[in-house]
Design a protein around this nucleic acid. Structure first.
Lengths: 356, 356
DNA sequence: CTGTTAGCGCATTCAC
DNA sequence: GTGAATGCGCTAACAG
């Protein structure tokens, strides 16, 4: 139980004052070469860990942080991410941060673009980005980099960008596991329906593409024989979906459905309404409607991506980086949780109560 | 973004000094009736949330907390619980606590008894207990209660005790889900082997009994037809197990094995050594050997109980209770994580890195 | 460039 | 009984 080393201790050991140590720790300059050397020598010998809460207590600086995400829906995936971000702010209440939330329509590239433009006009200290459109995000982050504004990604990463960190699940593995799970619960000869959303601007979300690849690889590696069929579906014209699906399920006799985006409940509800109980489902994201479908037995396995933690750690990492400029771990893949009817309640209750 | 209310604010509102408010908040007495009323009135109007970090900063008191658990093994279940406890201590470093770890042999009731006796002789402020033997624990906690020492359980709860809280998974549901998983991966006619450990003192661990009940209920509710066979196994005479199992697997042709305690790797390793690859396995607890077996394909599904979080929240709850005497939530069931070969790495990496 | 000082929110003296 | 003063570890402002 040896006492923690404090700034004061370092000051004594280096033969300088606490103020000087603080200046060095924060790279505030105005320090002589000799003082710098003496302190750095001590720092190498001892393991100094600043106490972030106390630090924040006396820190006058306020950090302006933008959070840019797709539109948040109640009980949805992005709400969980935002909740996680808010939990960090609560847990580190001593640190003064001014969070600014910007939401864009993830199915409309123009909405995303104008949100990015708006952010660039503000003067922010850092950004948390939930990306959807690859090129737009690359352009945006390039401008952030030019301004020296650090940023982190949540949900997924984007090629050719330089975030200080990203927090996401491995979407490829997610799809791979979905393949495994569906293969466990339907006979090897029955058809599997796949759902994939269509976006304005022609791009399919990066995450879905990766999941599809994972699913396909599992399918091939394990010599699955189930016929694969695409389920037609439109996010922008939802009124057409019911007819599309009626037609589809009339023509196709499926053993199971795999939904590679978070909209599994749409299919599940369709099946429920039409009393089709034989179709097994594997879906992503414990959103409220998905949880309902899981509990009612229309979804058999649901994959969770710990969105609260993505948000929580993204904000926490950003704060620690802003305050101490410590190097941070860049790649952060969160667990993929396999949820069933039996385990879902414990899962959600825990996520609701976990604060800190 | 309204400013947090501080003790100072309450003092002004109630027309008293900060010292008086503090005395009232902590029930230290020496307060006049009129001051008490004025402050309590204000407290009802505002939502005062003390900042635990700053509180600890100026708190002189040191808390002596015993942690009583079964022996800790490297990469084992109980090590994770202890790690979680340590993480709380790190996250709340401003709070001065003197943790005392007591370990007993969970397969020997006499070891447990003498550990409890030793603890009763010390003067502690609170206890975290990982219970195994029902009666012993009831006797022990009764004595703690007489001394007014608060305690919390991790891993499982014990009937007829009054902990301020317990943190465990729902072992019944765990067994139930294990039944579901094994039913997904073996044909309906193949045999299932069940493993259950034997203990000195005749008692089988409470957790295993509950899991067995859950498993049995799933089996019956779903009209499973697989023959069930007990696998002979001894923890105290491990040298006999190899011969026992040889004999057993020679006589029985199994489709799968369900291990209701954390020793699944023992069977998995046996199967590996004897090149028996056709037997599917569902086990509990991502201990290092179990993780190995999962990755090598000898275990197919592993159930995780978030032991780190059990420890983390147990200690955190205890500290908050000791410092603020706030009411705490008593029942705390952690999630049951379903792990596979594909997801295990993300799971363990996350648990290793989660600090706070 | 540097040491000293005040103050963050809170608990704890110690005079009054 | 009570308010004012002190200190926890850290940062910021200021005087030299």
């Amino acid at each position: 139980m040896q006492r923690k080393v404090r700034i004061k201790d370092i000051a004594v050991m280096a033969g300088v004052s606490a103020g000087t140590v603080d200046r060095i720790l924060h790279n505030r300059g105005n320090v002589s070469e000799s003082a710098l050397k003496a302190v750095e020598k001590v720092l190498k010998e001892v393991d100094y860990k600043p106490n972030i809460h106390i630090s924040g207590l006396s820190l006058k600086r306020q950090y302006k942080i933008v959070i840019i995400t797709p539109l948040v829906h109640e009980g949805g995936y992005w709400e969980s991410i935002v909740n996680g971000i808010r939990k960090t702010l609560k847990a580190y209440e001593n640190i003064k941060v001014n969070p600014i939330f910007h939401l864009y329509n993830q199915y409309d590239i123009y909405s995303c673009r104008s949100t990015f433009d708006a952010v660039l006009k503000e003067n922010v200290d850092a950004a948390i980005i939930g990306p959807t459109f690859k090129q737009e995000t690359q352009l945006f982050t390039k401008k952030l980099a030019e301004k020296g504004i650090p940023y982190v990604f949540v949900d997924s990463e984007i090629d050719d960008t330089a975030p200080i960190a990203f927090f996401s699940s491995n979407h490829y593995v997610c799809g791979y596991v979905m393949g495994k799970l569906i293969s466990h619960i339907i006979p090897p000869d029955e058809g599997i329906g796949i759902l994939q959303a269509l976006r304005v601007g022609g791009e399919s979300a990066n995450t879905t593409v990766l999941r599809k690849k994972g699913f396909g690889d599992y399918y091939r590696e394990n010599n699955m024989k189930n016929p694969i069929v695409q389920i037609p579906f439109s996010v922008l014209e939802p009124e057409k979906n019911d007819a599309l699906m009626h037609d589809f399920f009339h023509k196709n006799r499926l053993g199971g459905v795999v939904v590679l985006n978070s909209r599994g409940s749409v299919i599940a509800n369709f099946l429920a309404k039409n009393n089709i109980e034989s179709v097994k489902m594997v879906c992503v994201d414990p959103t409220l409607p998905n949880i309902d479908a899981l509990k009612n037995g229309f979804i058999d396995f649901l994959i969770g991506q710990r969105p609260e933690y993505q948000g929580f750690f993204a904000m926490r990492t950003l704060l620690e980086y802003l305050i101490f400029r410590n190097p941070v771990q860049k790649e952060n893949y969160l667990p993929l949780d396999i949820l069933t009817k039996e385990t879902i309640d414990y899962y959600t209750r825990f996520n609701d109560n976990f604060y800190l």
